[in-house]
Structures are given as C-alpha cells and as structure tokens.
Design a binder for these strands. Sequence first.
DNA 1: CAGTGAGCGAGCTTCCGCTTGACTT
Length: 779
Amino acid sequence: MQENLVIVESPAKAKTIGKFLGKNFTVTSCMGHIRDLEKKDFGIDLENNYQPKYVVSPDKKKIVTELKKLAKDAQMVWLASDEDREGEAIAWHLKEVLKLKPENTKRIVFHEITKEAIEKAIKNPRSIDDNLVNAQQARRVLDRVVGFEISPVLWKKVKPSLSAGRVQSVAVRLIVDRERDIMNFESDNWYRITGTFLTIDDGGNPAEVKAELNKRFPTKDEANAFLEKCRSAEFTIADVIKKPGKRSPAQPFTTSTLQQEASRKLNFSVAQTMSVAQRLYENGKITYMRTDSVNLSDLAINTAKKKITELHGENYVKIRKYQTKSKGAQEAHEAIRPTYMDQETVAGSNQEQRLYELIWKRTMASQMADALLEKTTVTISVSTAPEDFIASGEVIIFDGFLKVYMESTDDENLSSVAGQDIIPPLKANDSLDMASILATQRYSQRPPRFTEASLVKKLEELGIGRPSTYAPTITTIQNRTYVVKEDRPGIERAYNIITLKNDKITGKVKTEITGAERSKLFPTDIGMVVNDFLMENFEQIMDFNFTANVEKEFDDIAEGEKVWNEMIDKFYRPFHGQVENVLKHSERSKGERVLGPDPKTGKQVSVKIGRYGPLAQLGVANPETDDEKPQFASLRTGQHLETITLEEALDLFKLPRDLGEYENKKVTVGIGRFGPYIRHDNKFVSLDKEDDPLTVELQHAIQLIEAKREKERKAVIMEFDEEPELKVLNGRWGPYISYQKKNYKIPKKMKAEELSLEDCKNIISQSPEPKARGGRRKK
DNA sequence: CAGTGAGCGAGCTTCCGCTTGACTT
C-alpha cells in the first residue's frame, strides 16, 4: 500500500517532483481537466439554478480509471494542481470523481518546482477553496452559454457550422476593424528634407554629418523654395548637446511574449512556437511554457548571475525581480526560462535549438546591467531660413545586456538599435560645408495588419484568453475561415525627390513598392458578415471590455462576495431574451451589396454570400412573374464583397467564353471551383497563374492542352491490355496503382516499372479498402 | 472535381481552458 499519492497536472512536472519527494510518495498526473460540461445538449440545467452537468471527458476515461485505483490504495491524496481558478477546479473535480474523503485529502500549491518549495507546500496543506471553484464554474457556464446559444443563431441566420464565442468573436472583430481602418485610410504626404554636411573628424580625415530639417513641407513648391534658399546659405553649428541615456532589458518570457519574439526573430507561427516549446519542456530543458508570469525563482536568478559573471564579468550583473501586471494574470507558474541556466545550448532539432537559445538569451539579459548610451543632438542653423537641421546620434558607452539580447519590434520603421549613428566631433559656431540637400516625398503609413503574434499581444492587453488558449484561438478563427493568413503583393507608388547638389537643383520621380504583406491576418467575406451580424445583434459580447467586466465578477465570486449562479442568472435572462428576439425578428444575413445597374441591360448587379461562397448576381429573382432567372457567378480569389467594383463584377459574367475550335472541338474558358480552366473535349486544363481568362487566346489554350497531354503520357508507367481498368501511374507522391477508380499504394521494396499484372492484382487484394477518389462525395 | 446558387429536410455543426499524444495532410 502506497502511503501518499500526489496528483499534478502534467506528466513532466510529476516526474520532476517525484525525484524530490522520495519513496513514500507516488507522483502522478491527471492531464488537466478530467471532467467538462456534457457536450451533447446544453450541459446546464436551466430549471435548476444553472446546475452544471459534468461528464468525464472521453479522452480522460483511462486516466480516471487509473487514478481511482491509485487513490484507493493511498492513505493520503495530495491534490497539487495549479493555484489559479482552473487549477482549483481541477482539484475539486478530482475530489468529486475519485470520491476522496476530507480526512484523506489535502490540497497543496507551489509556484516553483524546487525541493524547498515542494517540501514547504507539503508542510502547509489547506482544503479546497470552494469560492475559487465557484468562480471557475461561473466562467465555464458563461462560456458555454455564450458559445452554445449564439452559434446556432449563426447556423440559422448566416451559414451552418459557424461559431461564436467570448474570445474568438472578439479576436475576429479586431481583424475586421483593422481591415476597415485600412480600407478607409487616406494617405497624407509631405516633403522631408535631409542634408549631408562635411567636416573633419578627430584624425583629421573628412567625415560626413547627416541631418534632418526640423520642419517638413506639405507641397513640392514649398520644398523647392526651401532648397533655393539653401543654395546661397551658410551652415553653422548652433548647438551641440550631449545627454546620457540608458536602456533596460525586457522582462523574462511569458507565453505571449515568447510567441511574439519567436515570430519576429525566428519566423515561427504561434502554434509552431508552442509545439517546439512543449518538446523542450518534456525534455526538461525549459520550465512550463503556458504562463503569464514573469517571475524567476531565486535559484534561477542565482545561476544566471553566476553564468553572467563567468562569461562577461561582475559589472554585467544586475539582479532584477519582475512582477506580472498584465490583466487577468493568475501567477500559477514561473516565467519561461531554461531549467539550467548554465546550459547555453541544447541538443535537438534546429527549431528546438533556436527557440532554446532565444529563451536562454532573454533570461540572461533580464538579469544583466542596463546599457549606457550617450545621445548627441547637433543643431545646424541655415543663414537664409529660420529652420534648423538636426543631427542626432547615439553611442553605446557600456553595452550591458545588449551584449546578449535585444528585443525586436513590430514597427519596421522604427530604427532603434543604439550605436548606429556616431557623430563626428563638432563645436558650436563651427561652419559646415554642405554636400547635398534632398527633399523626399513621404507618405503617411496606414495602420499595420495583425500577425498571429501581434494579435495575441493585443488579446493579452485586453485580458482576453489565456496562455493555454492563444494558439488554439488563432487556429480556430482560421479553421472557421473567418480569417486567412497570407501574403499579398504591394503596389507601386511614385514619389518625388528633389536634389540640391553642386549648386544645381534637379527633380526626379522614383517608384517604391508599398503595402506588401507577409504572413498577415486578413478577414474573409464570411468573417466580415459574421462580425457585422454579431455587432448588430450581440453588442455586449463583442465589446472589448466584456471579458474584463465578467472577470471582475468572477473575482468577486472568488472572494466570496457574490454567488455564482446569481451572477449567471443576471447575465442569462436578458441575454437569452436577446437570442430569442434575434431568432424571431432578424433577417438572414448574406452580406448583400448592390453595385448598380448593368449598363447594357439595366439589370441590377449585386454580390452576396451564397451556399458555396461569395457570388455575383445579375438580375433579381421575381417569383410572381417567374420570368428570367438571375445569373450567378462566383467571385474569384482575391475579390471581396466589400471591395469589388461594378466593372469587375460584370466581367465575371463574360465567362464561360468561346475561344474557337481545336481538333474540330470547341474550346471554352471559364472559372470553376478550382480556379480558371480551359475546357476541350470534355477535359479540363487549369490556366497558369499569370493567364487572365478574360483575354487568353486560342493559341495559348492549345499550348496548355498539349502540355497537359504530354504530362499525362508521362504519368502512365504501365498499362495492361487484358485489364484496361488497371494502370500503374506516376502521381504527386510517386508511383501508384489505379484500378476501378480506386488507388493502391505500391510496397516500398517493389519497383513500379517491374510490376506484372499478377503483382498488381496481388497488391490490390492485400491492400485495405482505400477511399474512393475524390474523398467525401455524397451517395 | 470544373455548368452549382430552387427546395425538401434528416442529422450535424458550436464554447473556453486544463493537458498530452495519436492522428492525417
């Protein structure tokens, strides 16, 4: 019989703690929540004060059986889940499901996984905090109510299988709002004046000083006039100011900041970062990766200090204690840090090594000295104008933490790495020779689109979502196709540049690419329609402060100042009324937009969301007269309900288009579910990306048809006269056997070119029944 | 798989937070 059973949440944690506790303790894990609300039906008894109906989650049945067995054999069960709301509820569910008796059950908590912390916890057990558990039940029930009452409204009023929720719907709103800000953005432009001046440096060599005018000009004429004035001007140093400055390291990593930095520095997606971190954690290389705490254990700080001294010297050390202040933080863990600070690198995949290195550097830097800078500002006066040129430079006097790590920023325009601009020694009243002065036309920047990581940052600022849900939320809104992550090309923009050099003023027009996007989040048409529908009908849920407001109430419940089902009741009554109201009165939402009349026929042209996605419609259905039916055409990729023009929509109806004949058969071009295609002799050939179906000509179409035939000829490795339905083909993943429209894998040791008909039949009879080609087809 | 978009209506979809593998693409 085991004396003591300790239950924690994760197996990796159980392993470590097991080592600390010795023989009298068995440490095991429950893998997070073991029970949840019933998934079928609502899972909440509305007739009975919102009583939750809990069931053991299907994937936890096995674990629960094992835990029951272990608990039965133990004299004392120690529930050691996290100290936050969710952790308390996990402990309570364990107590309920395992039917633990109070006299055999103790609840313990610890913030860091060290021998001392755990022994201290064992000495100070408490009982389960029912108020905290109730706060969690309120959270859980509220989320179920919101998600499971609004989602079905969307199925009826917009499209089946859609979803809404406290977290995901606000995440989508952020992206939709930003996209509209960008659409409505009006770019401003002005002229920025920069000058290059000549001087002599300490060594007596010629040196350059670059400076920017402290005024920008709204028009080309004004910029020109200023350059004219500079022609005959004298340039004098009016002032040199030197100021000390410092920069401090960033806080240790939390889930959110790790996701941001891994995205900026390593180009990892949010999900990728988490799975790489999970492996590092399981291998004991880093502490737990789902945390909102920036706290480091004393042990970690001490080993970091030792390592910094060893590598860089004592003057690089500065012990810093960080405190978490983000909204809703629950402080159940430490910050994300290397388990052993003296390990600079780890074995493992390239990704694991890079992420580890990032975490190691960030943690080291967080305990290092400030960087000391000297900022120099030089004012250069212009004898013929009231404006001044300003040259500014920053020199690192002491690098401190910058020796190891520098946090990146999302703003590409911000060049902020110190030590880039060394200014040659200059004195007041020195005069400078002017080498050139430039007036460059600049445009104001539209708001930036979100990356996965910058969306996580925003959600965290708003207190929406938790470290364990950031990555899944980002995945969900993409799975529901509310949002897509993609690249989009920029557009070319012209700008003027005027140069004064050698007493000559010359103007030039240059071009630049602007607005190109890489891996950014864009709302889809359905995302926008759903967002607008929710904004109109469920404003309260869409409010950025909704989560913060209910969190306050959860806190009150946790403090014992509010009763959880009373809080839910207060929310539920008006909310449910609103749901009923919307179901009864609101129109189906298709995002319809009328673009105007077709100039040829006068029929109305409109766009909306149809069963298979966004479409354009020519004409209006009239059931009474039952005359001509409207024409429909799908929107093309890259076209959107909100931005498509009348002309672009009309073009869609020009397809399918006759190109002429080839081999006495018609050749037509159209757009289908898989993009633009050419049809000939009942066969389809995809157009190349650069081909426009509206202008493509017969000759090119024939080329494509022939190219496809050539490819098909190559694709057939073997045919058999006796069995025309059986072929050995070369596909995307290598050779395979096709027989009666089903495909079969060829075993690795066999060579495709050497198969006999007999071999093929053997393979087919021995293979498991494959899926029919085309996947899920109905009937 | 590529011309769909009308309508009948069965049975299904859905939330957020804890956790880790077992899956397919």
